[in-house]
Computed example of a mutant assay.
Amino acid sequence: MSSDPRTLQQRVHAILRTATVMLDLPLGTQHVQRLAVEVTPAVRALLAEALDGAAAEVPVRYAVIADSADLAARIVDTENGVETTEYAGCVSRIGLDIDLDSPAAVLAGQLRQQNDVIATDVPTGTYLGLTIRPRTVQAWQWWLRKLAINRDAVTVQGGDVYAVGERDGVAVHLRGADVARLLPLSTGTRAGLDDVDFDTPAGTFATAMRRQPDVTAIEIRDAHHVAVTVRATSLVEWQWWLTQLGADPSAVTFDGAAALVTGAKGGASVELRGEACRAFYEADEATARLMGLITETSPARS
């Protein structure tokens, strides 16, 4: 046995790290390092007993001390088929029928090593629900890059932000808890307008609208003009936007699959672009007419 006390600790650390990965335990790098430090004296004592052959004559006493808060709590819900494990503030949920070697389970184990992760949910072998609480904007942006998420695909609901990404063939539904407070106004500004006062009509409107889940982009053009892009999921949602902006339905025009119209809100002129909204007019023209979205003065859609 090497006389360097660090050698054994390094070996114990390597064994614990391997076991953590193989068993998909919810342990981060710091947890494994701490376990190695705590366990090494006990392992050294056992080795000393074995080498000396004197365990019966000179018993070696040792103990591993761990804070109760660091002990993993595991609950198996057989009725709903879910196993929940909580360790060091991170909650891990996985279906009882999910293979621990499945892509989603393996990815969840890897990502839990990051301190930002507070929960993982693995309902299938190829889908992962991931909740994080990054402390800085830079940390949030790191997650977006890691999961191949475009910033324009992020939506804000209350204080949380949501997006869907992909990693190693696994679909990842990302939730950033309390991330909205970290972000500056989630809008773009044209060159030369970095000094726009967000207390202006355009800035106030943009601040309020960025929290709508179907908003995909906002561009402040000056203190009184703003462009908003939305992805409404139904004719009713699209009509809601027209109503909010006081836009004339007969003024709606089309650019490819998108619908375009100009309205106003709170003293700001708003250019509204509805991605893929043209399909609503063509798929159910009768309903669109009934709702007043198509009138005799509406422009041709051909």
Rank of each mutant, 00 (worst) to 15 (best):
I15W: 00
E86Q: 14
W240C: 12
T262P: 05
Y162A: 07
L185V: 13
A148D: 10
G176A: 06
R11F: 06
T131F: 04
T120I: 02
A202Y: 02
R211C: 14
F254E: 04
E282C: 11
D199K: 07
L27P: 10
F205N: 09
S2H: 06
T229W: 01
R17E: 14
D178W: 06
A119N: 08
L23Y: 11
I98L: 04
A206C: 08
A300S: 10
I220T: 06
G192V: 08
D168V: 13
R61F: 05
A36H: 10
G188L: 06
P103D: 02
R6S: 15
G109C: 13
A276N: 04
G125I: 02
E86A: 14
P299A: 15
E237Y: 04
A259Y: 04
G266S: 06
R145T: 11
A139C: 12
P299D: 08
V215A: 10
D195L: 09
D116F: 04
L185Y: 09
Q157L: 09
Y62Q: 08
A42C: 03
E86G: 15
I132F: 07
W241N: 15
I98Q: 13
R93V: 04
V196Q: 07
T155D: 05
T126F: 00
A19M: 03
V64H: 06
S2A: 07
A105T: 14
P41Q: 04
L47P: 11
V215N: 10
W142F: 03
K265M: 00
A251G: 13
R61Y: 05
W238Y: 13
D222R: 06
V179R: 01
I118H: 09
G95A: 13
L183N: 09
S186C: 07
G267Y: 13
L130R: 09
T78L: 05
I294Q: 01
A300Q: 04
D24K: 14
L23N: 15
T124P: 06
L96C: 14
T136K: 03
A191Y: 01
L111C: 10
A279D: 11
R34H: 15
Q33L: 00
A217V: 05
G192H: 08
T204K: 06
V164W: 00
